[in-house]
Design a protein around this nucleic acid. Sequence first.
RNA 1: GGGCAAGUGGCGGAACUGGUAUACGCGUAGGUCUCAAAAACCUAUGGUGGCAACACCUUGAGGGUUCGACCCCCUCCUUGCCCACCA
Length: 817
Amino acid sequence: MSRYNPKELEAKWQKKWQSDKTFQVDLEKAEKPFYNLMMFPYPSGEGLHVGHVYAFGGSDTFGHFKKMQGYDVFEPMGFDSFGIHSENYAIKIGKHPRELIEETTKYFKEEQLDKLGALFDWSKSVTTSEASYYKWTQWLFIQLFKAGLAVRKKSSVDWCPSCLTVLADEQVIAGKCERCGTEVIQKELEQWFFKITDYAQRLLDNLEKIDWSETTKTMQRNWIGRSEGAEIIFKLRDVPGQEDDKHSVTVYTTRPDTIFGATFLVISPETVKSWLDIGFLAKDEVKKYVDESLNKTEVSRLAEGKDKTGVDTEIKAVHPLTGELLSVWVADYVLGSYGTGAIMAVPGHDQRDYDFAKKFGLPIVEVISGGDVKKEAWQGEGKLVNSEKFNGQSVEEAKINLSKYIEEKNSGSKKVNFHLRDWLVSRQRYWGPPIPMIYCESCAKDKKGEQEGMSGWYSVPEKDLPVELPYVEDYQPRGSGVSPLASVPSFLSVKCPGCGKDAKRETDVSDTFLDSSWYFLRYPSVGDDEVAFEPEVTKKWLPVNQYIGGNEHAVLHLLYTRFITMALSDLKLINFEEPFDKFRAHGLIIYKGAKMSKSRGNVVNPNEYMQAYGADTLKMYLLFIGPYELGGEFDDRAITGVYRFLNRVWTLVEGLEEVKESNKELETKLNSLIKKVSDDLENLRFNTAIAALMEFLNLVYKHQSNLSREIVLNYLKLLAPFAPFISEELWEKLGEKGSIHQQSWPEVGKVVEETSWQIVVQVNGKFRGKVEVAKDSSEDQVSQEAQKIPSVEKDLQDKQISNKVWVKGKLINFVAD
RNA sequence: GGGCAAGUGGCGGAACUGGUAUACGCGUAGGUCUCAAAAACCUAUGGUGGCAACACCUUGAGGGUUCGACCCCCUCCUUGCCCACCA
């Protein structure tokens, strides 16, 4: 008899599986491909934490299960090693990111990932900061540029004063930088954008077709933020320094039904700025207000909350239906970046407009009945009033009829708007793939360029890829609006691909999210230096069958991957629009009541637990905590429960004595266990599957004397996906040939086919018990069975109730006469 | 303010398409083994009353539908996550 020694046996099998290539798949020859993907980590200095073990453990357990079901499971792993995260850490500890990444990836792989017993195929791994990978990231950029989907635009963008770079809309959370929490400020800059907004409707529509966590889909829907409404044109009067009737302003509204309640217009500071730029005159007060609000951070604009500010521009606007003259105000509660940057204010039916009107003494008109507009804006349902011939219509009717009417009067049209903004991909940082573009001043003067409307700009010829990121010592961000690469002359100067004269490279690098937006496409083609993704193997393995990761990426990574995939599909480079057939978000593992984070100092390091209990126990414990999609609280005491369980399995199998006749009850139970574990695994319900395995073991301990080898072998197979090491060791100890992970998953026998029904028995509405009856039993037979319940028998004698029954569905009910 | 998810023992959590709660695990108590302890194994463990058989109560709160509700409907409260002056 030996003791269960996880440390020793896990090291043994890790080595053996590696040398035997037990888990490797031949991508070309595979017959039943299953692409099992999990989100790759960025290699931080702290190493893998328990949350990773949870995420990867669940996904990999599923992978093992699929493998035993006969699929050729491809389960790659890699590193998202470019990006501000890694760079900031490198700066902090004073080590060059390139050297740092080499160390951290090695540590991640050898000290942590390798020890999990996962199916990872390291022969197909990617590290996004390696030239062999980012060559193709750059290639991807060029494809988008050539398709007109990568453009340079000057606009007001979010700038993080701490990270010293611009950020994408998705990377700004409530006015703060997603990474460092610093308040972002607005800067007017020319930057590279990907036109994800062109795909807004498709990104929304396709959500119906994919099997993703509902929570994730909802978040994407909200982010895309489709709204239906109308654009309405208001002619302007009394514009200082301009002739009458020459100018107009277009507003966006989702409530065209309230147009008769529009009592003034509000224009965003950004829009008014553009008016001033084209020669509108305005009093100093207006100019001052515009300047001030454009310099405010998003946060301080928000912090002022409902206390509205604004200035009357003294311009007048003509109401398109009544002809009335309305005053035009500038106020920062209207955003320049949404809709048309201007609104018609309907204070009677919009709380923000109401607050504004109250503050500045502007008129409030009720046009929808149902509320009390003297007290507050009424935003509910009702009938139209004060709306001429539309009076009496419902909001729903009026929306349709008024949009139509406005359109007939040439004063506007229906319009769909999206919250989604174009993806800003430039970063003024060092640690990323250089954007593979060249700017030629000479061509710019001649209005020449590779793409229309982008004179001076050329993509780097594909044969010159990759544009290597030069190794420089001084990689600190500058804050000057350009990346550190701008001060590397050898990098900067290049010949123009258009005219051959001296030109300059783009010095910004691209967003990390571009690196990760396509890595899953690369995995199967790793090693191929001719193409980004080899057509045959891509066709065979993609789209990904199942993807698992954290929901914090619902509107970042997961939206970008969908956009990139859709764009590549349109370019005929791949033949599918959606990257992941199935996506499931796992929950968060919390510790001491809070999300694990360095700043809170409550990060659980998996290494010590792996040392003490082994990877099998740690992983299985994490999966046992609760439903996979909910996560849960890590409790260092509770982990012993799983450890005890594995020890009990060990003891049982070690001491197994052959018996010829096996216990019938156990056989039946095993069958339902197989069904239970299979169903649960299929649906990622690891916690209940593990509970069922424990329950069975408890039962086995009571029937130990007549436990058959057959049952034990099957049981080990069911355990194998959860605890790959111990099950392999015991498989070997029992003298079985080959790896347990290459065995086929146990089949559910016929015994558990449902042949009986459970029927609930009540007497005069009171519960008396349940009976099992054959499915084809007659009413009388059911009644006979039910009467065998002692209390029913008693009732029949004592209370003299009749034995008449009625059977309704699964209910049998005895009633008094 | 909007959206999403969730509220079940001392704790993490089970409960099939509504079928008569608290699976599994932790913790706790008692026992076996031991000189002793740990480990392991066995037993008990929602609450209240009772020596007891047993009775009554219990899935955030309150209503409703149903023979029957943790599950469905309505109102409210709490927590977590996401978004947020998006017209």
